[in-house]
Design a protein around this nucleic acid. Structure first.
Lengths: 345, 345
DNA sequence: AATATAAACCAAAACGTTTTGGAATCGCAA
DNA sequence: TTGCGATTCCAAAACGTTTTGGTTTATATT
């Protein structure tokens, strides 16, 4: 049998013949309430199964105890994997950090209405802070949130990275390291299969690659490709048949790396014996593939921790100075860079 | 320069010298307000950028305008793909249905504290209804929500499916159809690589497979495998070397199907020419694989629509009779069931 | 005994909305 | 003039919490 009414501060107060104020303060842990009364209150609260009504609390405190993410519309293909998976982990990390903080998800598709959607979300005071995903180089959302003075942190840098909180992977360092990795294995003809420049990290990746190549006095070659069906495969076919005799392939995504392997197979080239291929993001396909793909992984947990650390003061209602954090990639060594190549060398 | 205060009903009312009530009713679209006043009110609201404070509204209406999902802890591998991706699509569909409904995400890891987490979430009245994911055969969450009289719908059936709302894919029909599909292609030795029985749908899948096989008077063979690293591959190797000369492989997941292909390659068997392989879930790997994998896809959108239709009355504050919906799988034909087999036949 | 200090408590206001139960105004028929 | 129904408006209460600015009671100090 269920109680027909939710217990409130008032019901607890009435049962003990004390004021609502005292009940509230007792449960909030204030020191100006007698230890004995506190225990009584806590007992009754427990018995009644009291849980504070969040709407009421939010109304009076002005805090939402929630952070918001306005997602872009899913692509419907593997490109969503990173975002959705990250979301899962971030949510979990947030819950571990403080189980009373909600993650509120809504959608703001890129386009005309995007900023309005943000505006309405901000104005309704549903959340204390925002996490902005899939940042763009010049990101109007960043401008809006800054202007409206709403706390937020971006996942990924923007052109105005010095003016807002952000967390990002150190793409430059990561790609420099994997380039060096292939150079150390004896590769001299190494190509970077990058995403178009429109993607902000593309530039950073290229810089990392180029700096390692230049240090080794090797010629650089960068090719860009979209992730649309068939495109990376064709690009890979071209490269494998080029005069430059590329043996090292550094790819902006595991999906691209996988297509390089397929292209090699098509041409009768054994990727394990003759090539060194490195992907990025540690997508499921990288471990399933044959050969499995050496890849750069950036820990979801490290990202989440950094984001949460930055968001934390805002959730508590404080203001905080701008912060940012570069998370290192870690190399996951697999078969696509087996050392058999260097022995041939 | 920003206004230093959020506009409220009161500020609008004062500016027009009318009552808060009228402003509220005008914006809510009630008929008892003069068309001219309504227009004035709407103009001022627009100019001031008025957006209702949700906490206040929720407090008085008792509705949260939100639905909650308490997620399990991610596995950290490809098994998360379906859940996280589904989440992305469901969120989008919900937003399309009504942009004012929030999706509130929190976590309730399976285990001792799970029900307490649910209880606190329920009692804080943060959401109007729940979507329960990764349902288990006997699911204590279902019992709790039913007992507490909180509206919810599960994604996937349970043993007590007749006592709650649910949406599920018609695994039985789907697996019957793909079995028939392989039979029609001339396969006679068809094995089902299923998940363990602990997973509720395993049984339904087996039933579908068995009924098609029995109708064709073919012997059935069911093998179960976990998705742990290496396991499906070993199972596939065994099957491919068995006396039974299996040529048809129906797999409970694309990941398993992919491992069958890998095992075939290892044994020098050409999967395209000699086998018919069918996966499930249309994971990214199924289209990337070579040969690409014929698979069963259940439309995220169809699921989301069904779920939202069931949830809708609760969001409006109505009660509603129990409902459920079976969503059909659709077959995505790819290379792993190319017809070259039947021509050999 | 008077006074200051500390401990324990509380009434009332505030947060911003919706809803209830009328009140005021107007036109029109009788 | 009265009465009546529409139309248009509104004061006040309510939702459940936190916070403010106290008051009361007990204890210590002079």
């Amino acid at each position: 049998m269920k109680k027909n009414k939710k217990p409130t501060l008032k019901s607890i107060a009435e049962q003990l013949n004390i004021s609502v104020t005292t009940v509230s303060r007792a449960l909030a842990g204030y020191q100006d309430v007698n230890e004995k009364t506190r225990q009584q209150i806590e007992k009754v609260a427990q018995d009644l199964g009291y849980v504070p009504n969040l709407a009421a609390r939010r109304l009076v405190t002005g805090k939402a105890d929630a952070i918001g993410i306005l997602l872009p519309v899913p692509y419907g293909d593997m490109r969503d994997h990173f975002l959705s998976n990250f979301l899962l982990h971030f949510g979990q990390a947030l819950h571990a950090h403080d189980p009373n903080i909600d993650l509120v998800i809504s959608y703001a598709p890129e386009g005309e209405q995007e900023l309005n959607t943000y505006r309405r979300f901000i104005d309704s005071q549903r959340v204390d802070a925002f996490l902005v995903m899939r940042t763009r180089r010049y990101d109007p959302r960043v401008d809006l949130l800054t202007l409206e003075n709403v706390p937020f942190v971006t996942h990924g840098r923007t052109e105005n990275a010095d003016k807002h909180n952000w967390v990002d992977t150190d793409a430059q360092k990561g790609f420099e390291q994997v380039t060096q990795y292939l150079i150390d294995q004896g590769h001299t003809s190494i190509v970077l299969l990058n995403f178009p420049e429109r993607i902000f990290t593309s530039q950073l990746r290229a810089e990392g690659y180029e700096s390692a190549m230049q240090r080794a006095h090797l010629p650089t070659h960068v090719v860009t490709t979209e992730l649309t069906e068939g495109t990376p495969y064709k690009v890979a076919l071209d490269l494998l048949q080029s005069d430059r005799k590329f043996t090292g392939f550094i790819c902006a995504s595991d999906v691209i790396a996988y297509e390089v392997i397929k292209a090699a197979n098509t041409l009768g080239i054994d990727p394990m014996q003759e090539l060194g291929i490195i992907g990025c993001d540690n997508l499921p396909v990288s471990s399933l593939s044959q050969p499995s793909i050496t890849t750069l992984r950036s820990s979801f947990d490290a990202h989440s921790q950094a984001l949460i650390e930055i968001l934390d003061p805002y959730l508590k209602g404080y203001t905080a100075p701008l912060r940012n954090k570069l998370v290192n990639y870690e190399l996951v060594e697999r078969q696509s860079t087996s050392t058999s190549f260097s022995s041939v060398f």
